[in-house]
């Protein structure tokens, strides 16, 4: 999985928009969208919101967490906690990335939001680095990845899983008797 695929998944998240046109319900396999009434907010997936925004057909209402005060709070909490804290959205980084790129004029103080998000990302990355260090050093059997978002997990793939696979292989020795058992690990 790479960042483009993660982004693709995150684009399915819903966001509110205020359209400036009328249109009936759109029936999609993933669910119905609309109906669109000019001036009335409606929830649509991010990919549609971006496309409409590019064509100046709507105004995007930023998600509730996307404001300077709330994000400052999240950042403070992240700094104080030893473990990862819960993020306001499972795809906070991707959502912010996409919305800030097309709808900067709809989001107040977007430059500040961008800086805070980058700070939060960096704090979490350094936490991730130190916990990876610890897993390897202490020979831990398992690790909990609570509250880690998809993009963050993605950032240590494929390096960490591969490295742990190799470590496992070295650990088990590789006599002929183990060979058949370890077939399952061949990708």
């Amino acid at each position: 999985m790479n960042s483009a695929e993660t982004e693709f998944i995150a684009e399915k998240e819903l966001v509110s928009i205020v359209p400036n046109f009328n249109y009936e319900v759109i029936y999609l396999i993933s669910g119905d969208i609309g109906p669109f009434r000019a001036g009335l907010p409606v929830k649509v997936p991010i990919w549609l919101a971006m496309s409409l925004k590019r064509r100046q057909k709507c105004r995007i209402v930023p998600p509730r967490w996307m404001n300077v005060e709330d994000l400052e709070e999240v950042k403070k909490q992240e700094l104080n906690e030893r473990f990862f804290t819960k993020m306001p959205s499972e795809h906070y980084m991707v959502e912010a990335h996409l919305l800030l790129s097309v709808a900067a004029d709809d989001i107040p103080r977007c430059e500040q939001i961008r800086t805070i998000l980058k700070d939060i990302w960096d704090i979490r990355m350094s936490k991730l680095r130190s916990s990876v260090d610890q897993i390897i050093k202490t020979n831990a059997i398992h690790a909990r990845l609570d509250h880690l978002t998809l993009m963050e997990i993605n950032s240590i793939r494929p390096l960490l899983p591969h490295a742990l696979d190799q470590l496992f292989r070295l650990q088990n020795g590789r006599g002929p008797s183990q060979a058949s058992g370890s077939q399952a690990f061949t990708q």
Partner: peptide, 10 residues
């Protein structure tokens, strides 16, 4: 992400 190293001798 195919890791080419053999996982068991073959």
């Amino acid at each position: 992400t195919r890791f080419k190293h053999s996982y068991c001798p073959n």
